[in-house]
Amino acid sequence: MTSLLRIELRKLLPYSTFWVLLLLQAALLFVFFYARGNVMVNGQMAGAELYQFPKLWMHLTYVSSYLNLIPGILIIILVSDEYTFRTLRQQVIDGYSRADVVQSKASVILLLALLLAGYVFLLGMGFGLYHSKEGAASMFTEAQYIFYYLVQVMGYMALAMLVAFWVRKTGLAIMVFLAYTLVLERLIQWQTPDTIDKYFPMKALSALTPNPHSELEQLMLGITDFLTPGQALVPAVLYIGLFGFLSYQLLRSRDL
């Protein structure tokens, strides 16, 4: 897997599209955190209240989850590029198996997820230390949310990978991905009882980073049944595995 990743890095590092999207994601995360902290609530900066350890981790990962589509789109571009350039075909001719192809993209997904989670963690430390009033004894007590975020962003990218392997065309794959994540699943959820739809991919993934004000939300929207982040971890990991497995099956069953 490390040699697969090394080969992927040879493709990625000189690729400007990769850097543009990665820097965009990093910049937007920063802007989101900064803006949310600077909203004035009752004549006071929200950050002063929101960005206190340890609840800051829950806040930041919830905010970060709004930006998961960008890493997804990046993965779609990276996968569909291999079809556009026909390099996928060439690499299978040159020695890759179908499993190698999926594993090499999975290694990129893991790397990106680690980078993003690490970045959010660093931003959290920065904002937290800047705003913290008292000593930082409880700094890491809720840092597990960083791990939940890591799994969540991997889930988005794994779904994006599957869509890209399935559709193969960049533009169309991005549209299918956005349509499913933003519209389609919600429409299905609407028709499905809460007890079942909480296990749907997007809902299970979003349950990993709950809204810190969820009590209010639940009261207003009348949501009765939801997964806690710890409970959502199991379906989320299963979905990631499933998306990878389906990608492999797609590659196996079709001509390249």
Binding site: R6, I7, F85, T87, Q90, G95
Partner: peptide
């Protein structure tokens, strides 16, 4: 079939690694 944004040498290096 090559990556258009890579140089000829970078492309062949990549091929070499895929082939071992």
């Amino acid at each position: 079939n090559f990556y258009p944004y890579l140089t000829g040498e970078e492309n062949l290096r990549l091929t070499a690694e895929v082939k071992g």
